[in-house]
Design a protein around this nucleic acid. Structure first.
Lengths: 190, 190
DNA sequence: TTTTTAATGGAATAAATATTCTGTTATATT
DNA sequence: AATATAACAGAATATTTATTCCATTAAAAA
């Protein structure tokens, strides 16, 4: 008998991400996925039992990968500002390097496709950041503001800056990154 | 003969906005719009010749209304910081009061539904803000940074803060609004 | 008041799209 | 090498969803 090709799932995922990037989640259909992945429809259904399962499966995978990639740079021992800068740079880098992935996740979050399990993943992940911010407050380095407010402010800013740069084809170099971080730092520093 | 009911278009728009808020643009279909608007399918097609036309028509209408509502508070004669604060407060207020509308516009922007004409509207609208920022630089009140960077930073922050407040059911009062603006002001002030 | 015309509702149809089915092929296992 | 099993492609089918059609109704015009 023939075994499942361990690469096929990733091939299907990659095709899906590309299609959603180009046409949005509203434009996604199974025939297009098959064609983009150079697979027959039947093959796609060997690996995923439905369109919904495919979307949720990819969503969960990306959520896990992204959370890990982004927040693993938090180091409780590094100086606070240094750690914030590293976290910020890493966050922006990830948003750019995995643009398709983040776009897909956001599209899914606002769609009717997600099952309850996928929806739960949307919540947590901030604990590490909140702990870091608490340390900054204790060390009297940043303002005494609600963590959710600070986090929304910084992440919202970062996301929009990346989106703008992608739209205008602006390459993000070190100097630009420093300027962007300084905006955020100046806003929260004591 | 019977004349078209001038209210029907708005009724259909309202139904569409509610449905998209609840199920996302991916979950929108014409039967649901008819049902939500308490109209037969045929009636919907009297006012719009297709689903695509309905979506684009609503998108264009909202773009116009929103741009006007948000940026009309820019007053070249008011002191710079006062004007920035007024613009910020007004922006946040609009994002909250017209949450469904903004959500719909964003969903459309990332979909395959928009025609070229709709897509163009996505661009301009910032001229007034850019002029205001230029004045702030000339008066040496804010940093010499790219307008697109400043705008992305402030609008991204504001959008995400509103989204967070909606998700967590946080009521935005004056004190909260002042805190949020201070974050932005401290980030750009000289 | 009568006539005429277009709106209206909802069933019927068309079109798009997801899913299943079938014959074929590749490859693990014997 | 032979066999069995499951992957594979793509056509066939089912399902969903957009659109049209038609009988009825409302109201403007005569």
């Amino acid at each position: 008998m023939k075994l499942k090709d361990p690469d096929k799932i990733q091939i299907i995922y990659t095709a899906t991400l590309k299609l959603v990037k180009n046409n949005g989640l509203t434009g996604l259909n199974m025939a297009a996925i098959g064609k983009e992945a150079k697979l027959g429809m039947g093959t796609v259904y060997v690996y995923f039992k439905s369109k919904e399962e495919l979307i949720n499966s990819l969503f969960k995978r990306l959520k896990g990968l992204n959370t890990n990639r982004i927040y693993s740079v938090i180091k409780p021992n590094a100086p606070f500002k240094v750690n914030m800068k590293e976290l910020y740079d890493n966050y922006i880098k990830n948003r750019i390097d995995y643009f398709e992935e983040h776009f897909f996740v956001e599209q899914c979050s606002n769609s009717h496709f997600l099952d309850p399990e996928s929806r739960k993943l949307d919540e947590a992940a901030f604990h590490g950041v909140y702990a870091l911010l608490d340390r900054g407050k204790k060390e009297l380095l940043i303002k005494e503001l609600d963590n959710a407010l600070i986090t929304s402010h910084m992440m919202g800013s970062a996301n929009e800056i990346v989106t703008m740069c992608m739209k205008t084809n602006t390459k993000i170099n070190k100097s630009f990154l420093d300027q962007a971080f300084t905006l955020c730092w100046d806003s929260i520093k004591r």
